[in-house]
Amino acid sequence: MKPAPFRYHRPSTPAEACEALAAELRDGAGAKVLAGGQSLVPLLSMRLASPPALVDINHLDPAAGLAAIEIRPEGVHVGALVRHADLLASEEARLAQPLLAQALAHVAHPTIRNRGTSVGSIVHADSAAELPAVLALLGGSLDVGSVRGTRTVPAEELFVGPLESSLAPDELALGATFPALADGAGVAFAEVARRHGDYALVGVAALVSNDTVKAAYLSVSDVPTVIDLTDVPDDDLGEAALSRLDPIGDIHATADYRAQLVRVLTAKVVREARKAR
């Protein structure tokens, strides 16, 4: 469980990081960005991934602002070096969008949250992860940069497949924007995991406003899936969601059991989100 050899870049500005990514891609298979390392390092150690180079962004100049959480008019902006633990602890972020803290409490364990970045989790695009589903449900976006300039990718264009985001191999994610909770709206999050802090067997986030009911699902489809449940009678919420999802069985749970969790959790989060309005 030791990584294969790789070249190592330690840029001090986002521009240098983008340069390094571009140069590695020009010369070969391209580099991987190393953020908190909580997903990437295990993949390297088990040699499930062996990129020729890493671009370590942990030493970027703080002046670049990538470690900042900002409450902007459009929502909570989370820089690429904000750790899960920082975001979970941010009172301002919790007030602006309570779903963040509700979901983050289920992300792994304190030691992993201390290192893992929220933006890294989004780029990693694991459909079993909490934050991609949250970003998708809220209709947030990701700011990315490269030697070609910067662009903003809306959540619905971000998650393209299992562990696959629409970022180009030489793009660096700079920050994510989670829209703030609108007046009169409510959110809730619930999941069932085998052990506290494990990836969920099923997780559901709900957003209820005056005219819509929406839920986002993790671990029951290839990409985080948002389902519009507006006008669905309460008793049919679970079945309505299931018609759009594809729970599968694995060593931890059967497909039937996951379907049951979809029913139970959907009813629960919609109820709670309504209550939270």
């Binding site: 931890h252 749970a253 059967t254 039937d256």
Partner: peptide, 11 residues
């Protein structure tokens, strides 16, 4: 026994 196993047994 896991929750999934128990769910199957209940059925």
């Amino acid at each position: 026994i896991s929750p999934s196993d128990l769910f199957t047994l209940r059925q």
